[in-house]
Design a protein around this nucleic acid. Structure first.
Length: 433
RNA sequence: UCCUCGGUAGCUCAAUGGCAGAGCAUCCGGCUGUUAACCGGAGGGUUGCUGGUUCGAGUCCAGCCCGAGGAGCCA
């Protein structure tokens, strides 16, 4: 067992060599005097061929009774073989059983969603799940590299917050020592604005919490959001930044995670079509399209899930919907001077019916108007004094957006539900494992 | 919170109101190129819970519990 340890992900670099694999038994087939052991090690899956004559009676018998997910160390020769799934297989000469497993609950056949989610800590070992989680990793790194490359400073915002940032959405309260209630953040937005006034261009990237009783394929109660914010920026700058981010992330995953997308059977032609600039739709234009299609859309209202799907189907790539009615948007959105009943905001809708992945816009930078909005929204002014200071001391046009990582990953991977895009999804009725 | 669908073997699912079934998994046996391998055999059941109708309920009725999809809201 002195052969060098290699990972399955790089097995192609070792054709003809005697190597060691450290992993787990994923599946086993047998044909009397030859076993086919599918082994995984976290970097990939490979078939190990074990002939009775090559390893001897004792090892051969032991392999015949190994349960799924037994931890094994295999020694053997890497061989290119057209019959192997990844192009390579390992001809075994040795087997060490590190830990024998029995009755692994997730068998190679079908399982229901509830059953799998109850065993999420094991489900993540599946080939599909590891592919998704690698794509998530790539998306997150692509996001960070994009902002870092554009001169943005990572400035994290608090997760314990004293009050609602937007005042509308439901928050998770937590007891903060004896007599104070704190809330888990639902957005780093307001702090981001302060950070932008200090550092120019900033972003925060962390978990966010929403106590909405939403029960759909696009919702988690705990999800990760990246939020950039720029000083001296208008709506156009915000849209350009969003386009740059989305195209850069998609291109990066296509470039570096082709193998994972193949496992997921993703139609990559749809992703290759994602190029800037994106189509732009004024809210009024969007409303016209929906009404022309005969949808029961209320002018002045927000877009529903079906509305978003219909709109995104009109275009190949993502769509930017701008100028929503100010009345249905958050208090910090800046009204358009050209049409004061509309906000300088943008929602980016992903293609193929994946819906909103980005929401943002230009912020209200006028002190008096902001005070008025806080009153209109029935928010306690004293809680926002620090935020109002940003308008008292050197206020400038500024803006930014938030992008939900899980929705982006679900879209890029072509998934039915966001619950598979994070190792341990938190949902309305799921807090375990 | 509302609407729709569902809950039967470890898993995925069948079963006109009339003997509780199959495939996979497990165990035993067979097979030197299998790809969710295949072939033969065995074990495995409080049909989500409570009550009702009936000679007889997995099946019909009522209430409850749990889950899924969707709506609203949002990223």
């Amino acid at each position: 067992m002195s052969a060098p340890h290699i990972t399955i992900g790089r097995i192609g670099e070792h054709a003809g060599e005697t190597i060691t694999l450290k992993g787990w038994l994923h599946n086993r087939r047998s044909s009397g005097k030859i076993h086919f052991l599918v082994v995984r090690d976290g970097t990939g899956f490979v078939q190990v061929v074990m002939g009775k004559n090559d390893v001897g009676e004792e090892v051969f018998q032991r392999a015949d009774h190994l349960g799924q997910e037994s931890a094994v160390i295999i020694t053997g020769v890497v061989r290119a073989d057209a019959r192997a799934k990844g192009g390579y297989e390992v001809v075994a000469s040795g087997l060490e059983v590190v830990s024998a497993a029995h009755d692994y609950p997730i068998t190679p056949k079908e399982h229901g969603v509830d059953y799998l989610l109850d065993r999420r800590h094991l489900w993540i070992r599946a080939e599909r799940q590891t592919a998704i989680l690698r794509v998530r990793h790539e998306v997150i790194n692509a996001v960070r590299d994009f902002f870092n490359g554009q001169g943005f400073i990572l400035a994290d915002t608090p997760i314990f917050t004293p009050a609602a940032c937007e005042g509308t959405t439901t928050l998770f309260p937590v007891q903060y020592f004896e007599d104070t209630t704190a809330y888990l953040t639902q957005s780093g937005q307001l702090y981001n604005e302060a950070n932008a006034m200090a550092l120019g261009r900033v972003y925060c990237f962390g978990p966010t919490f929403r106590a909405e009783k939403s029960k759909t394929r696009r919702h988690l109660t705990e999800f990760w959001m990246v939020e950039p914010e720029m000083a001296y920026a208008d709506l156009n700058d915000v849209i350009t930044l969003a386009e740059g981010l989305v195209t850069s992330v998609v291109a990066r995953v296509l470039d570096r995670r082709a193998a994972e997308l193949k496992v997921l059977e993703r139609d990559t032609s749809k992703l290759e079509a994602v190029k800037a600039p994106f189509a732009r739709l004024h809210y009024d234009e969007a409303a016209k399209i929906l009404l022309d299609k005969g949808l029961p859309f209320q002018i002045g209202g927000d877009l529903g899930g079906t509305d978003e799907t219909v709109l995104s189907e009109q275009f190949d790539g993502p769509v930017c919907v701008t100028h929503y009615p100010a009345a249905i948007k958050a208090f910090y959105m800046k009204p358009d001077p050209q049409e004061p009943d509309k906000a300088l905001c943008v929602d980016v809708l992903a293609p193929e019916g994946y819906g909103e992945i980005i929401g943002g816009g230009q912020r209200l930078d006028d002190l008096d108007l902001l005070l008025q909005r806080i009153k209109e929204h029935d928010l306690p002014q004293e809680a926002f004094e620090w935020y109002l200071d940003l308008r008292r001391y050197g206020t400038v046009p500024h803006g930014g957006f938030g992008m939900g990582i899980e929705r982006v990953v679900a879209w890029i991977c072509g998934l039915e539900h966001v619950r598979e895009t994070i190792p341990y999804p938190r949902m309305l009725y799921r807090l375990y494992p």
